[in-house]
Design a protein around this nucleic acid. Structure first.
Lengths: 104, 104
DNA sequence: AAAATACATAAGCACACACTTATGCGATTT
DNA sequence: AAATCGCATAAGTGTGTGCTTATGTATTTT
C-alpha cells in the first residue's frame, strides 16, 4: 500500500526536512546532509524510505546520486485529500491560491 | 507542531480507517467499533490521537460522544500540500475534479 | 439507589523504527 | 593501481507506539 508508505514516510520530521530541502532544488545525498547533523547511513536510510513512497526519485551521476522531488507521491496525497473535499471549508486561503494556480 | 501530529496520526492504517468512516457520517465511538475488531480502549486511544491532530472533533451527547471530521486538520494538510504545488503535474485528474468542485 | 452503559485513562508488554558502527562496492582521483 | 570518495546495506541497540487488561467516571436505565 503506497498510501501507507507516504504517510509513514512523512510522519518523520527529519524526512519532512529532507523533502522540503529537495523541493527547493535537487541535490545529492552528501549535500543534503549539510547543516543537518545526521550520519551518512541515516541519510541514506531516510532517502530509501522516501524513495519507496515515491516522494523522491534518484538520478545516478557518476559516483553521485542526485535526488529530486517525485511528483507521483505528491499526486497521491492530492488524490487522497480530494476524497474528503466535502469537508474542506471554503474559506481556506491555500485552496484559493491553488485554484488560481491551476487556472492558468 | 500540529503538522507533525497530523502525519503521525495518519501514518496508522487503523486511524485512517476510522477517519474514512467518519468522513461518511459522524457517529459515536461504540458505533465506530462495529466491524473493526478493535477493543474499546484502543478505539478511545486512536480517537485521542486524531483529536490532538485536529482531524476529528467530539460533541458530547449525554453518555455518548459523537465524533465527526474536523475540517481544520484537512485544511492544514491542504496548506502543507500547497507549498509544493510547483511539483504537481498538471495532468492529475484529482486536481481537475477539485478545480471543478471549487468553481461552483 | 443499584446496575448497566459509554467512554477515558493507567500501566505493562511486544514490536516497529530511527539511530549507531562496521563494512561493501562502484566511480573517481592521484 | 592504490587511495579516496559517495553511497548503500547489515547488524545491533534504545526509544516510541499500539496493543492489552484493569480501573475510574459520568450518565442513563431499571
Amino acid at each position: 500500500m503506497i498510501e501507507h508508505d507516504i504517510f509513514r514516510a512523512m510522519a518523520d520530521p527529519t524526512r519532512r526536512t529532507i523533502f522540503e530541502k529537495l523541493a527547493n532544488g535537487s541535490m545529492n545525498a552528501s549535500t543534503l546532509r549539510q547543516g543537518m547533523d545526521i550520519s551518512q547511513p541515516a541519510m541514506s536510510q531516510h532517502l530509501a524510505v522516501l524513495r519507496a513512497a515515491k516522494l523522491v526519485r534518484e538520478q545516478k551521476e557518476g559516483r553521485f546520486v542526485n535526488y529530486e522531488v517525485d511528483p507521483d507521491g505528491l499526486a497521491l496525497i492530492a488524490q487522497w485529500l480530494a476524497k474528503y473535499r466535502a469537508y474542506w471549508p471554503a474559506r481556506i486561503d491555500a485552496l484559493k491560491l491553488l485554484l488560481k494556480d491551476m487556472d492558468q
